[in-house]
Amino acid sequence: MLLAATIYSLEDINKFNDSGLDIFILGNKDFGNRLVSSFSEEEIKEAKLLIHSLNKQIYINVNLIMHNEQIESVTNYLTFLKEIDVDGIIYGDIGIYMLAKNIGINKLMIYNPETLNTNSYDQTFWANKEILGIVISKEITIEDIIKISENKTILTGIVGHGYLNMFHSRRPLIKNFLTFNDVESEPFIDNHNLTLVEEIRDEKYPVIEDNQGTHIFRDKPMHSFSEFDKLKQAIDIFIIDGIFKDSDYLNDVIKDYYLCNKKDKVKLKDKLVKKYETDHDTGFLYKKTVYDKY
């Protein structure tokens, strides 16, 4: 299994490489959603050279929900990524797979729609489309993750650590709300310090509005320290998403997972919680959602 993580800046590359990271995930805000940082084409070229010189891999997040008027610019972007020879492209919109197929890079594509890869057939289906891999949906239990991975023929990953997204609207919901209340909205766009609290709950859900719409996240970042050994046997890529944290936090987390098999896993989590004053949970790994009886 390879460890993958988002990076905050090009300086992270050597640092995270030393900590044991295998795959570096970058993106640009015009083509990627919920990124920790936005990298220009020049920066991505530079990152690619450095990452390949370290014998590591570079993945690019092109996970926008693509609207018709973006087809041309996304095609150009995919062509650029093909030319500079990245190792993987993460997409969440099937239209982007079609564009990639047209320019002959379907074998670089990793499908991560976040909510739609939920059963074993999704693995088979996308394997038949000759892509590089899929990322299993975030609301799937560890039991099902293992089952889905059993007969895999393409790379299969999960997002195993970080704040998971739980909502994406095309609507500018923060701007609209503030405009309605006569509050200047500009300081609150692309602002990573905002949270929503529901009226009868205590949890604080991070929320961002950007040029792709409005995104709401789980209140706690997930971790998989105790499950890491089991997951290692099942999946190929373990993704760490650093959104709402920083480079130091990410570096600690990468090191922790890299050395996870040699350490006390409960202590790893407790140390992280204490150092960064952030509680973590295990997401949906043990939480079966209901749908017919409640």
């Binding site: 739980m166 909502f167 994406h168 959602t289 749908y291």
Partner: peptide, 15 residues
């Protein structure tokens, strides 16, 4: 965006 929302899953355990 329909199909992309898990607010309910997270807040109430309902898929």
């Amino acid at each position: 965006y329909s199909g992309r929302c898990t607010l309910s899953n997270n807040m109430t355990d309902r898929d």
